[in-house]
């Protein structure tokens, strides 16, 4: 193509190079926002840890989208390829929720079922069979 239509080939070259650099600036900007928010939190305590973590996760997924879609070019492939790559990754939804829930549950069990804690569990038999649960 570049031999027959030199001018068009050159124009194509310019526009896709521009797109590459645009993606780079987006990725850099997102990273700078992340670091900026982290510093803001360190200095002022705002935004709260929960909000901050939520924002970090969203921004991370956004960065991942740009890398896969633009740099790895998946956004410009046909649907069949996009699906064969992305559908298996849906397992991650279950994977993440199930395991983090499990971890949290372990923490709660360690806290609530440790010998001597909570105090109510020790008190309950002494107070008799009837009454509160």
């Amino acid at each position: 193509m570049e031999h027959t239509h030199t001018a068009e080939g050159h124009a194509h070259h310019d526009s896709s190079t521009k797109k590459i650099w645009k993606t780079f600036w987006i990725l850099l900007a997102i990273t700078m926002v992340e670091v900026g928010l982290a510093f803001l939190h360190l200095e002022t305590g705002f935004p709260s840890r929960v909000v901050l973590n939520g924002v970090f996760v969203i921004l991370t997924v956004l960065k991942a989208f740009y890398i896969v879609s633009e740099f790895m070019h998946l956004g410009s492939e046909i649907k069949n390829l996009i699906y064969t790559v992305l559908l298996p990754l849906l397992l991650f939804v279950w994977f993440i929720i199930a395991f983090l829930y499990e971890g949290n549950s372990w923490k709660n069990m360690n806290r609530d079922l440790k010998p001597g804690t909570p105090i109510e569990a020790v008190k309950a038999p002494a107070e008799g069979q009837h009454g509160h649960h």
């Binding site: 983090l100 499990e102 971890g103 923490k107 360690n110 806290r111």
Partner: peptide
């Protein structure tokens, strides 16, 4: 990374 997350979630 998820095992890391699991352990972190299970730590006080």
């Amino acid at each position: 990374l998820i095992s890391y997350g699991t352990i972190r979630f299970s730590s006080t």
